[in-house]
Write a protein that binds this DNA or RNA. Structure first.
Lengths: 133, 133
DNA sequence: GTAGCTGCAAACTCTTTGCAACTCT
DNA sequence: AGAGTTGCAAAGAGTTTGCAGCTAC
């Protein structure tokens, strides 16, 4: 099921601006900031406003179609909520690498359970320096 | 308290305000926001200003005497940089529980290494719901 | 037709900063 | 004495919101 359909199912109107923003997110291979999304959306629809980008990203976040990140910056970054994964941030270049690890997933749930909690969500971010070959 | 000594060693002047803020941090068992630190510091020195609290926390962060957190809120929380640990945040009450896990520590470093990185830092936060007994 | 959406600008929140006065060393 | 620190108020950055007009359904 595609993104637009999920929005419609959630009761959202499929306006041109929303289509544009969804397209931008879908085409982004990185983790764009709100500003980034705004810039990219403007290329396709120059009348789009920052307020709409904020409102739309907040809606998508509530619907959990998008994941909001905060990589120790003073603004948010977004990405589509696809396969569950974590991030390694290159402290020198700012590059973001995605990874998954089954063992860690199990361990997280296990730790939460031992503390008397059911794991709802989690953030794991590694910050590293590239090893020179 | 060798916190003060560490600050002096770093070349900071030990002003009354800084002593107060260090004391507040040392006595806090939670993860106070800047506002919290300010309120608690004001109880001991009513003339202290928000600007000084911000400036001091930023300095302590640079000296790595303090760790800045951002638990998906739109403001920062701080705690003294003591033993390395992670946090489980109760999504219903906002309570923060600290934990450590050797196995996860090893795995983190291992994952980073496999991706060609030397682990410099890391954030692991679990968000959970209390399991009713 | 109307509930919901949009752009604009103003407002808000958290944080930083310029400046003149003050204080630790 | 002098460099560093402070409080104040103003400025900044990121984000939210009230409103009047517009649009998808």
């Amino acid at each position: 099921m595609d993104l637009e359909q999920k929005c419609i199912d959630a009761g959202l109107k499929m306006t041109g601006q929303r289509k544009t923003i969804l397209k931008v997110l879908d085409e982004s291979e990185d983790h764009p900031s709100v500003e980034d999304v705004y810039e990219r959306a403007k290329e396709q629809d120059s009348s789009i406003s920052m307020a709409t980008v904020y409102r739309t990203l907040n809606l998508l976040d509530e619907l959990e179609l998008v994941v909001r990140h905060d990589f120790n910056e003073n603004f948010s970054r977004y990405e589509l909520n696809m396969a569950h994964h974590h991030h390694l941030i290159d402290v020198e270049s700012g590059d973001v690498i995605e990874f998954q690890n089954e063992e860690i997933e199990k361990m997280k749930a296990e730790i939460a359970r031992k503390l008397g909690y059911e794991l709802v969500e989690c953030r794991l971010e590694l910050y590293g320096k590239k090893i020179k070959a």
